[in-house]
C-alpha cells in the first residue's frame, strides 16, 4: 500500500513540476490533468469517493477541456 501511495505522490509531483516547465502549453495541460487524475485516485485511497468523483470529472475532464479550448483560441507555445 505504502509503495503505491509513494509512487502516486512522486508521479503527482513530477507531473506538477513538469507542467510548470513545459513550453508547449498543451503538454502542460495534459500534465496538470494527470495531477488531477492522480489526486482522484488518492482521494479514493483516502476513502473519499465522492470527492474523487468530482475531481475526476471536473478537474480531469472539464477543466482540461476548457484549457485546451483556450489554447486553441490563442497560441500553443509559451513565449
Amino acid at each position: 500500500m505504502i509503495v503505491i501511495v509513494t509512487f502516486l505522490i512522486v508521479a503527482m509531483l513530477a507531473a506538477a513540476v513538469s507542467a510548470y516547465f513545459f513550453r508547449d502549453l498543451l503538454n502542460a495541460v495534459i500534465a496538470s490533468c494527470m495531477v488531477s487524475l492522480i489526486a482522484a485516485v488518492m482521494f479514493i485511497l483516502l476513502h473519499a469517493p465522492d470527492v474523487a468523483m468530482a475531481e475526476a470529472s471536473i478537474g480531469a475532464a472539464l477543466v482540461t477541456t476548457v484549457f485546451v479550448i483556450a489554447i486553441r483560441r490563442t497560441t500553443r507555445y509559451e513565449k
Binding site: 473519499a48 465522492d50 468523483m53 468530482a54 475532464a61 472539464l62
Partner: peptide, 14 residues
Amino acid sequence: TPGGGFQGGAIIAS
C-alpha cells in the same frame, strides 16, 4: 451512496 448532485451533474456534463 457517495456522490450527489454536483458529481452527478459533472458526470452528465462529461
